[in-house]
Simulated assay, not measured.
Amino acid sequence: MPQHTSRFTSRRGLLFGTAAVGAGALLAGCTSNDSSDDEPAANDQPAAAESSGKPVTIGFAGPQADHGWLNAINDNAKNRAKKYSDVTLEITEGSNDTAQQIGQIETLINKKVDVLVVLPADGKALTQVGLKAMRAGIPVVNLDRIFNTPQAYRCWIGGDNYGMGLNAGHYIGEKLKGKSNAKVIELAGLDNLELTKQRTKGFDDALKNYPNVRKVARQAAEFTVESGQAKMAQLLQAQSSFDALWNHDDDQGVGALRAIDQAGRDDFLMVGGAGALSAFQAIKQDNGVLKATVLYPPTMAASAIDLARALGQSKGISGLSEFEIPASLTLYSAVVDKTNVDQYMSTGFK
C-alpha cells in the first residue's frame, strides 16, 4: 500500500475491536441517539431502520488509485455514499501530485461542500489546505495519512501499521511455538515510508515474546507485483531453509507467491498483509504456503463517509454515549485465516 501513513503509535485513538467489519457496522448507524437508529447494520449498508436526515454534500479527495488498496478506498467511499439517499458525493479525480490535489480540495472548499473526506497523497504537504477547510467552517475527516496537526481535521480514521506487524508476529510466533530454533524472514514494503518502519517494529516486538523464533533475513520491496517477485526470489536464493514469511502487502505478495512457486518451495508458512481478495481466496483454498493475512482494511473509506454524514447532520455514533463523534478512530488489524476468512471475503479488494 504505497505512501499511506498511519498515525504515530503514540497517538491516542479509539480502538475498535473487530477491524473494519466492526467499525463499519457501528458507524453505519450514525445517529443522535434516536431509538429508531440504534440497530447496527451489515458492513455494506446503513442501518435498515435509519430514515433520511438533513441532506449532506460530502467532498472526497484521494490519491491516484495506482494500487489495489487505493482503488478499493475509492470504491468503498463511492459505494457507501450511494447507500444514503441524503448524501451527495463530490469526488475528485485522484492525484499523487500534491499541488494538483491541493487545487482539487480548494475547488471543493469553494463549492461550499458540507464536509470533506481527504486521504492526502502527502499528509504533511496537505496540512495547510486541511486548515483552510476547517477555518472555512467545513469539518474534515482525515483518512489514514495524517495531517501534521489535529487543527487540520475534525476526525482522523485510519489503520494501525504497528498493530499490523504486531499481530503478524504473534500469529507466526504461536504457529512456531513448539519448534526449536525457528527461523522467519520478512518481505517489507518501501523502507523510506514511516508505515513500513512501524510494521517492522511491531513484528520485531511481537517476536520478542518467542525466544525460540529468530528473524534471519529481511528484504524491502516496493508494493508492486514485480518487486515482490524479484525480492522474494532473492530471499529464497539466500535462505535455503526457514519456517515462516511475513509479507507486508498482498499486492506485492502476488509476485512473492510466483517466486515461491517457481522455486518449488512449500516448506514454510506465509502471512500476508492488507486483505486482498486473491489472498482471501488462497487462504480459503488452503493448498499453498499462504495461511493468513493481516488486515489494513480499505473499508475505512466507507466508515469515513459514515462519519462525514454524521458530522454534516450533527449526530453522534450509535452504540456510544457521546453526542459527538470521536476525534480519532484507529481500526484493528485482524488476522484472517481459514477459520474466519468467509466473514471477510466481501471486503477483499482486487
Rank of each mutant, 00 (worst) to 15 (best):
T5L: 11
T107E: 11
A220M: 05
A28S: 15
G24M: 13
I157Y: 01
G178A: 09
T224M: 10
K315F: 00
G255F: 10
F147V: 08
A136L: 02
S227L: 06
I138A: 07
L307F: 01
Y162E: 07
L329K: 04
D250T: 07
G159I: 06
P120M: 04
T88I: 02
E50S: 12
L166H: 09
S240N: 10
G22M: 11
G275V: 13
N161Y: 13
L331H: 01
K112V: 00
S51V: 09
P326T: 12
E39A: 14
T98R: 07
I138S: 02
D191N: 10
T127M: 01
N110D: 15
A152M: 05
A28H: 02
P326M: 14
G189W: 03
F280S: 06
G159Y: 02
F203G: 06
E322D: 14
V271F: 05
F16I: 15
D266R: 13
Q252V: 03
E322M: 12
L207W: 04
E174A: 10
T224D: 07
G312L: 09
A221L: 04
M300K: 12
N167R: 12
H248W: 08
Q262L: 08
L14V: 15
K82C: 00
C155H: 05
N212M: 01
F223N: 08
Q128R: 02
A259S: 13
D191Q: 12
A61E: 07
N181D: 15
P40N: 09
C30S: 04
A217H: 01
R11H: 11
S303V: 15
K197M: 09
Q104R: 10
A301H: 06
